[in-house]
Simulated assay, not measured.
Amino acid sequence: MAVDTPNPLVDIDAWEAFCDELKAAGQQIIRPEAPTDELNRAEGWRYLTRLTRIALDMFMECSDRDFPSFYRPSHETAKIGADNPDNYYLRAEINGQHDYRISGTRGTVAYLGFIAIAGGYEEADGNMRSVSAIDTHSGLEVNADGSIDVILSQTPQPGNWLKITDDTVAVLVRETYLDRSTETFADLTISRLDMGDSKPAALAGPKLKADLAKTAAFVKGTATLFADWAQGFKEHPNTLPAADQEYCQKLGGDPNIYYYHGYFNLADDEALLIEADDIPQCDNWNFQLNNYWMESLEYRYVQIHVNKHTAKYRSDGGVSIVVSAKDPGCENWLDTTGHREGTMAFRWIGADRIVHPRCKVVKLAELAQLLAQ
């Protein structure tokens, strides 16, 4: 007797649609304004593979909002949107209609912040909106034994409370170091409250199709968003204008951070001199170099960024930072690692006031004289 076999809920069409969307993301790497040299093109194709790895964690491996887990959405080999070399990032996918608890140890990092997120780069508007935030700058409570607990819910709670809404989809954690070699990051876990004896559901066809589609949409949306940013920065090279802070918050920016973004484009005999004559009281500040795709350069092995702790200060209390391909033999030199052009970022974190940095292109032969003035 023949047995009827139902049509599969997930057939090859879902996989082909996923592959087609990933293929379409490649158009961002060959945009006419993007650099065409071997290094930037190679980094562009690698960038898409990195975005795919991040998206697979986000939408495939860690997408059960009833059983959330922290994963790293940006790290040493997977980078997005001027990722901060001083940060250890964590993210967990949640459902704003449920309550959650984050618990663990505070660690010794200079700054620890939690942000509830709505939306994402995979959506049509590309916004990853900040719903609410709690952090060490604004009074995160730490227990006497160094442990912390944060409740995520729509209704207010005693102690550390992170407000969420119906449309909240994730919580993002930023742990900011002054010195990675000596500080200990926070060790955190997250769980949904009122779970009882339930267990994760088996993977269903409709969810698999949706997760594949979101994965590909994230890769394409993220690549497009930051290629648009780089294009805009390129129009005003070797400057560090203040970013639109409200727009940064719509993309998941920390409300305690004041952002600057720019573009460097230097000849072999040139350097970019960045100066801040007055350093405000702050939790941290930093400056970093990125490639065209807004990935931080290789900070594990090369000095491509400087912060409040690692910087060498002038006798007047200000700071001078030098960006160039060749080592000029001065303090606070940052290596462009073979890039003649790329993006860059400056941040004030928890600053009591804002001081705008200044930029100037100088000849390497004249640099020593300028720094001595």
Rank of each mutant, 00 (worst) to 15 (best):
P206T: 05
L364Y: 02
A213H: 08
L152A: 07
P32G: 13
A133M: 03
L178C: 07
H98A: 10
I94T: 09
T337W: 04
G119Y: 04
Q249K: 11
M128R: 12
Y88R: 10
N291L: 11
G262E: 11
T239C: 11
Y247R: 11
T77W: 05
A230V: 00
N307A: 08
S130Y: 01
V306N: 04
S191H: 06
D228E: 07
F233P: 00
R46Y: 06
A24L: 13
H137D: 13
E331H: 10
L289M: 00
Q27L: 12
S191N: 06
K360Y: 02
F185K: 02
E61P: 02
I279W: 07
K363C: 04
S132G: 05
F287R: 11
K363V: 03
A24I: 08
R314H: 08
R46E: 12
W45T: 07
K79W: 02
K363A: 10
D316M: 02
L152C: 07
G81M: 13
L289F: 00
D83P: 00
G139Y: 01
E298V: 01
A325H: 05
S296G: 09
F59W: 09
R347S: 08
L22Q: 02
N40R: 15
D269A: 11
W45A: 06
A42Q: 14
H356S: 13
Q303V: 01
K308V: 08
E331Y: 05
F233R: 12
L272T: 05
S198F: 08
G113C: 09
V306P: 02
H137Q: 09
I134Y: 03
Q245L: 10
L112G: 00
D352H: 12
P85D: 09
G44M: 09
L297Q: 07
L152W: 07
R358N: 10
A372W: 05
S324C: 02
Y299W: 15
G342D: 05
G262T: 10
R53W: 09
F233Y: 14
A271V: 01
A55W: 10
Y263I: 11
L178F: 14
I148Q: 03
T239D: 14
A78S: 12
E366S: 14
N238T: 06
N95G: 04
L56T: 07
T336R: 14
A325R: 15
Y313R: 09
M58F: 02
N238F: 11
